[in-house]
């Protein structure tokens, strides 16, 4: 396939160092995690899975991983429900105060996390909801919702409003309209929104740090507290884990997009073959 815009060869040359600059610090945790040493060192002294095994044998670390996954699950479920319904509800609707509502939904992206962390900390203490992963998950849901809202809203931009009306005229109630009209169109946005929500939660440290308790220490918090006095390769292992999770998420999304695109690109061929 030919690109319509031929690139200058120098551009490729220049983009290589930029690319390396962006990727190497992230990628470097992988060899460090597989390092055959009791400390974090680079370059690695030899390849070993000892640190990885040690990570999964250590209850403190595995429970941190579990806590992270639990908070991410809460954030994804609530974030998707709130973000998607907000996007659908506000779609194509104009009313006084609508910009304010949108601003409110997006606010968690702009308000400094540390401010949110303090606010949530005080709020959950005052209602006596402490010592579990739930408040952390709920706080993560709040910062994940705007991402789902934005990706869903973007995919709704392609919705022909007459589709909703035609479904209604054919006898569809609100739930059928949601299922047969909205869902197929917002699905790509929903999936990327869910992935965003997941990675936002997995990565979030400040709020998790404020609200941590013995039973509710997420992976980034565990890493942060350990790195100050206990510099083990397990920290590198958890970093490598987070990087892999993010990479897998990205790959899944790319695969999904490619699959959609190829199924639409096949169509003109199918038509010409039949006529």
């Amino acid at each position: 396939m030919k690109t319509t815009n031929p690139q200058h060869p120098l551009l490729a040359l220049l983009s290589i160092p930029a690319f390396l600059f962006l990727v190497i610090p992230t990628a470097i945790v992988v060899p460090v995690a597989l390092n055959d040493s009791r400390y974090i060192t680079f370059p690695p002294e030899g390849i070993s899975f000892a640190a990885v095994a040690g990570f999964f044998a250590d209850r403190a670390w595995t429970s941190a991983l579990t806590a992270s996954l639990q908070s991410a699950a809460i954030a994804v479920v609530i974030g998707v429900l709130l973000g998607a319904t907000a996007a659908i509800g506000l779609h194509g609707r104009k009313f006084p105060g609508q910009p304010a509502v949108v601003g409110l939904i997006l606010a968690p992206m702009i308000v400094p996390t540390v401010v949110l962390a303090l606010a949530f900390y005080q709020f959950f203490i005052s209602i006596g909801m402490v010592g579990s992963i739930v408040p952390i998950g709920l706080a993560h849901a709040v910062i994940a919702t705007p991402y789902v809202y934005l990706t869903t809203r973007a995919s709704l931009a392609g919705l022909n409003p007459a589709l909703v009306r035609s479904a209604q005229s054919l006898g569809a109630g609100p739930l059928s309209v949601l299922r047969h009209v909205y869902l197929p169109i917002i699905l790509p946005g929903l999936i990327s929104g869910a992935l965003f929500a997941f990675s936002v939660s997995i990565d979030e440290t400040v709020m998790s740090l404020f609200m941590q308790s013995p039973g509710a220490t997420t992976l980034p918090v565990k890493m942060f507290t350990d790195i100050q006095f206990n510099l083990t390769p397990k920290i590198a292992v958890s970093s490598a884990l987070l990087v892999s999770v993010a990479t897998i998420g990205l790959l899944l999304q790319v695969l999904f997009v490619l699959k959609r695109r190829s199924s639409t690109r096949m169509l003109p061929l199918a038509v010409s073959a039949q006529t």
């Binding site: 589709l163 035609s166 479904a167 005229s169």
Partner: peptide
């Protein structure tokens, strides 16, 4: 109802 641009799903 038949719409202007058909509005087929």
């Amino acid at each position: 109802v038949v719409f202007q641009n058909y509005a087929l799903f």
